[in-house]
Design a protein around this nucleic acid. Structure first.
Length: 643
RNA sequence: GCUCGCAUAGCUCAGGCGGUAGAGCACUCCCUUGGUAAGGGAGAGGCCCCCAGUUCGACUCUGGGUGUGAGCACCA
């Protein structure tokens, strides 16, 4: 006699065991039709699931996030079925859900073409119309292996064989197609309303670059055509914001063949870079960091001592000179320890905070480069804190405070914090790890922000916290980090004299806030769609004359504003005012000052913002006040005047 | 690094059964001095990514390379 409790708290009694579908039916025909799956005591199940005892039940529909996930997962099966109808020789492998969609990997004798994709999509539509029931069944491992061997699905056999244990496995069948799957799935193939195959690409079998490459077909599926449209619009919007595109349009930087993965910064892009660097310099100075600078080229022997050569020598650029081999430094840490090692340090010197805008080079794999986001030459806002074990927590807490304040200035309020703890392969005693992990944890807890634990993902030399920010498109960008290091100071002989006059090895905290200037600027460009907040805009103001008559007034005005520390450009070209406004609006200059006879006579400026807003005529003084306020506000979203 | 695609004027892109190429914008000059997102005219501009091969002839076809895009793998 199952009694089910629905999400609204109401209860229903059934005489005999009932399926989720029947429960939905008993509530209403509409719900029965919309039902994609069920949730029984929190577990997702098929609508065919039989409820035999009292339980909390929810009917999962497309209005439910889980419902959409199930829809996408089932859509992957739908696609696999279509592929096998069209290409019987194609073998299926795996087909999971990913953000906003799904993919399925196939082994096939040739690659799929865009025409193939279109054909697959059409066949998917046919299968939807066939409205095939999706049926779950359970097979013993042996039977399952025999079945898939007979079908010639070698990859599936391999998957089944790799599943540990002897328990039975679940399978889903729709028409002629059957697939190993945990489920749950939609009850039939008629449930799909909006899907689209987006692209094909290669992907390694089992994610292993030693193994063969499969054909991965990506698709997306939504509850409605409207949602699909919105998603496609979102993709378009992201494309418009692409920093590589905007970098070219706004004249910020370029790349060229002779220097792959290394940016050529143009005046406006470099201005942004400098503003950020000056800001970081100031803020770090205020927070008791001492800025240093260390060499670009360092003899390989140092990298051997540090242990990087054995692991990363292939990824380092090297330079031969005087029968010696130097590496272009891929990181700054060993150099910072060299600075620490000069002179005898006392416990009284700790914590000792060093910062460097360190230029680094790494030979990144050719296929991994991506605009400014992943480059071979970059500058880290690097810093190392030498401290005692006892000081870890407060240093981490202070760092976090600083990082969050800086992110706010750049206009990022949402920060995702993740704590990565000890991996299997590691150095240092468990006691030491306990202490370090606890210190990081305590610092996180003290901050009171939500954070995520990622067990086993720490570096071999210590645990770390990673700080990711969410841009305005909802994309997550990892930028900052703080890592505890038990190894490097020891390896490179860093020591300090303790209170009892014994020699001790300091703990080293590696930390970065922006990560790299290159990447961070890339993130900023995409976040702001190139319309930098006034404090970061390479040109804050552009002065436009209407006719030659106002030229002198404009030049004087430029001088006045420049003397007040603003970045002011001027456009005296013989062009119509509408043309100039258009050009500089497209260049996303925050303020356009239009100067005609009226302004000259009244000693004022007509102010227009890049978003088209006309602020009308203002006294020069008033405009300066406004501009100064805008700059002082940084990119903080509270009271934000930018748009 | 791997799979697939792409590489034509400063930029965005057309183009052709193999006979060395075009548009818009930008640039230069001229007319125009015009009040809030494109005024008009004229001109100049190309090793059609690089190296081989096929061919009477290659920007076009074939092979190799480089760069780049999507994805995978990698990311101290």
């Amino acid at each position: 006699m199952p009694q089910v409790t629905l999400p609204d708290g109401s209860k229903r009694d059934y005489k005999d065991p009932v399926t989720v579908a029947q429960i939905a039916q008993s509530i209403g025909a509409g719900l029965a039709k919309a039902a994609l799956a069920g949730r029984v005591d929190g577990e997702l199940v098929d609508t065919s699931y039989l409820v035999g005892s009292d339980a909390d039940i929810a009917i999962v529909t497309e209005r439910d996030d889980d419902g959409i996930e199930i829809l996408r997962h089932s859509c992957a099966h739908l696609m696999a079925q279509a592929v096998q109808r069209l290409f019987p020789k194609a073998q299926v492998t795996i087909g999971p859900v990913v953000e906003d969609g799904f993919f399925y990997d196939f082994a096939f004798e040739r690659t799929f073409t865009p025409e193939d994709l279109a054909a697959i999509e059409r066949t998917m539509g046919v299968i939807v119309k066939e409205n095939l029931d999706v049926e779950r069944s359970v097979l013993a491992r042996k039977e399952a292996i025999a079945l898939f061997k007979e079908m010639g699905e070698d990859y599936k056999v391999e998957i089944i064989e790799s599943i540990p244990g002897e328990e039975d496995l679940s399978f889903y069948r729709q028409g002629e197609f059957i697939d190993l799957c945990r489920g749950p799935h939609v009850p039939n193939t008629g449930k799909f309303k909006a899907f689209k195959l987006t692209n094909v690409a290669g992907a390694y079998w089992r994610g292993d670059s030693e193994k063969e490459m499969l054909q991965r077909v990506y698709g997306t599926a939504w509850a409605s055509k409207k949602d699909l449209e919105l998603y496609l619009e979102r993709l378009e919007e992201a494309e418009k914001r692409d920093h590589r595109k905007l970098g070219k349009q706004l004249g910020l930087f370029h790349f060229q063949e002779e220097a792959p993965g290394m940016a050529f910064w143009h005046p406006k892009g470099w201005k942004i870079y400098q503003i950020i660097r000056d800001y970081m310099q100031k803020v770090q100075n205020e927070n008791k960091y001492q800025e240093i600078s260390t060499p670009q080229l360092v003899d390989f022997t140092l990298w051997e001592k540090s242990g990087h050569a054995s692991k990363f020598s292939e990824e380092m650029f090297s330079v031969e000179s005087d029968n010696r081999t130097y590496a272009l430094k891929p990181m700054n840490c060993p150099c910072h320890i060299q600075v620490f090692n000069q002179g005898l340090k006392s416990y009284r010197d700790l914590p000792l905070r060093m910062a460097e805008f360190g230029s680094c080079h790494r030979y990144e794999p050719s296929g991994s480069m991506h605009g400014l986001m992943r480059v071979r030459s970059f500058v880290q806002d690097d810093g190392h804190i030498f401290c005692t074990e006892e000081q870890i927590q407060s240093e981490v807490a202070d760092f976090m405070e600083l990082l969050l304040a800086i992110y706010r200035d750049f206009g990022f309020d949402e920060v995702i914090l993740r704590l990565s703890t000890r991996p299997e392969k590691r150095v240092g005693s468990d006691e030491l790890w306990d202490k370090a992990e606890q210190a990081l944890k305590d610092a996180l807890i003290a901050k009171g922000l939500p954070w995520e634990l990622v067990p086993g993902e720490g570096a071999f030399y210590g645990p770390k916290i990673e700080y990711s920010l969410k841009d305005c498109m909802g994309r997550i960008q990892q930028c900052g980090t703080i890592q505890v290091d038990f190894v490097l100071p020891e390896r490179l002989g860093a020591q300090y004299v303790a209170e009892d006059s014994s020699r001790k090895t300091p703990v080293m905290l590696h930390r970065a806030i922006l990560g790299s200037f290159e990447r961070f600027i890339g993130v900023l460009i995409e976040h702001y769609s190139g319309a930098m907040p006034t404090w970061l805009a390479p040109e804050q103001v552009i002065i436009l004359n209407i006719t030659d008559k106002q030229s002198e007034y404009c030049l004087n005005l430029q001088e006045t504003l420049k003397n007040k520390g603003f970045r002011v450009a001027i456009d005296l070209r013989n062009e119509k005012i509408g043309f100039k406004i258009r050009e500089h609006t497209l260049q996303k200059v925050p303020y356009l000052l239009i100067i005609g006879d009226k302004e000259v006579e009244s000693d004022s400026v007509a102010v227009r913002k890049r978003n088209g807003e006309d602020l009308g005529a203002q006294k020069i003084e008033d405009f300066c006040t406004r501009l100064a306020q805008d700059v002082a506000n940084f990119g903080r979203s509270d009271n934000n005047q930018n748009s």
